[in-house]
Design a protein around this nucleic acid. Sequence first.
DNA 1: TATTGTTATACTCTATAACTATA
DNA 2: TATAGTTATAGAGTATAACAATA
Lengths: 153, 153
Amino acid sequence: MKVKVASEKDVRLVELVIALFDEFREHANTCMAAFDLSAAHAAALLRLDTPLSQRELADCLKYDASNITGIVDTLEQRGLVERQVDPADRRVRRLVVTDEGSRVLVHLRKCFEEASLVSRLGDDERAQLRALLTKAVGDRTNTSWAEMLRGRR
Amino acid sequence: MKVKVASEKDVRLVELVIALFDEFREHANTCMAAFDLSAAHAAALLRLDTPLSQRELADCLKYDASNITGIVDTLEQRGLVERQVDPADRRVRRLVVTDEGSRVLVHLRKCFEEASLVSRLGDDERAQLRALLTKAVGDRTNTSWAEMLRGRR
DNA sequence: TATTGTTATACTCTATAACTATA
DNA sequence: TATAGTTATAGAGTATAACAATA
């Protein structure tokens, strides 16, 4: 069995992924600033497409539950999210995006998706790239913009 | 001229890059923990392959200069880096990696480069991926591990 | 007793401002 | 006066611990 050693070229490959991600991050920062949302607020909002309890949101975003209170406070004060007491268990606050929140979410997603990777490759190249990356990523799943917005995990 | 709209598939492409980066980040965190280095310390060390003044290091890492003092203090206390007064301008501290620092740097780089992207693709596939990513990245340059370790820019 | 959410608090990371020593 | 580095400090962001309400 061969020992796995990273060649010069492998290193370059990693650097390319980092460079692309870096571009996305910069773009995402611009988008979030445009909507006056911090990374944590944007990540929370993006996750609330399907309603969640605060506990579920915390698990989802890998935040300690204590942080969710303040994040949701802000989103609620801005009229983007509503806390609804779960009738089945009155300890639980179910978080639902308001109409205004939905509108912001649509615009925010649109802004995010203008990441320029899209523009520098042709259709065929994008299809090839998609295939290669899918294989490279393996079984890693459920990763999206919200994951990008957290520095540590 | 066509309006640029991100398709479902383009979104997926972005998500794949995020997923890969996320894997690198997790791997990098493991490496840094193994060497008991914070992201800032690791990033600084990685940049000091070529000696720099503290000011240059700050610019390089996009830190305010005031932060460099503490970071270098730690690296110096651990015997990884030395502050040398520049004889030509006694205000300047030139930072040079010690022998011990070089050894750590070699091991740290080796650890970083074991990122598993390397293992899931064949040689041909990696070459294709490299070509596509190079085109997608465009003229973005000088991006590497140190850039990954900073959340914001 | 265990769990959801809240509060108070502490720690890390980074930036700003004021200072010193040189230039 | 301007620049390199230092110090003190303040603000984010996140985690830990103790607590109240509910199960």
